[in-house]
Write a protein that binds this DNA or RNA. Structure first.
Lengths: 141, 141
DNA sequence: CTCCGTTGTAACCATTTTAGTTACTTCCGT
DNA sequence: ACGGAAGTAACTAAAATGGTTACAACGGAG
């Protein structure tokens, strides 16, 4: 039973670290906190950069946020790391028999339902900002 | 980028077929409508049976519903086929560095957020019944 | 201007999961 | 008892993930 890639949670970790930490946030430093390989971090940083969430340049160490922590939602991160395609969280079996009353029309009906369920989840992600998460880290450190 | 198993959509297909069809619903007949292997159908039927949604016995052909179509929600099916573990839709990376302000507390915070997002999706699935879907098939056939 | 640390990528591997398939056993009504 | 149907184990092929090594490209400090 498969799960949504941990790229998402790692990305949130990265952004939180940049938001909270006073040190220089190099890929290797972040990798140490996340406990993974630096290349994994670089790949995800690439996603975050492409989405305009962070500034990171080759050669120079230390990433920084491009938006205020209270303007970055979990949905922004989720979209940035591209862990779930638009409307494709659920896999609808394809090629049902069109000669069958059910087979002919179930696909469209299911896609509509599933898209709504997925949208409900994404709306919930949109409600939480990086700032809200970061608050919890600071107070407990 | 991985999706939720098509077992879910196939299961909905199966139940819809049983609800709508007047014929005997044998595994092979269903497999023809879904366009897959009969064994796949049998496995999923096993899940549905375990969940108390359908009656199917070895030896005798033809499955039947154990609950009214308007009392079976998509959430019931989703749980029956066990495509997503309880609160585990998202994969939270494990083993973050506890000596880091973020690493120490991000795991719990993320799990809470993700559990809520997942719950939002599941609540949406709960709102649609098999009867609502079946209506669409009948009218278009 | 030349190092050296850092980022950007490509290539590759091990593991896990899924869907599908074959084969065989168990069950039941005719 | 026979035949059709469900139950199940075992295996395969394909895809995705996380991880790893290796190397090129970049930029600031000396």
């Amino acid at each position: 039973m498969k799960q949504i890639s941990s790229r998402f949670s790692v990305a949130v970790h990265i952004l939180s670290l940049i938001a909270v930490s006073t040190k220089e946030c190099t890929g290797d430093y972040i990798a140490g906190s996340v406990n993974t390989n630096p290349v994994i971090i670089r790949k995800i940083m690439g996603n975050l950069k492409k989405a305009g969430l962070v500034d990171v340049r080759p050669g120079v160490g230390g990433a920084s946020l491009l938006k205020a922590p209270d303007e970055i939602t979990l949905l922004d991160v989720y979209r940035a790391v591209d862990v779930v395609d638009e409307g494709q969280l659920f896999h609808v079996h394809d090629g049902p028999n069109p000669d069958c009353p059910v087979g002919g029309s179930i696909e469209a009906a299911l896609r509509a339902e599933f898209a709504e369920a997925q949208a409900a989840m994404e709306r919930r992600l949109e409600k939480t900002t990086l700032a809200q998460l970061a608050m919890q880290f600071k107070s407990s450190s």
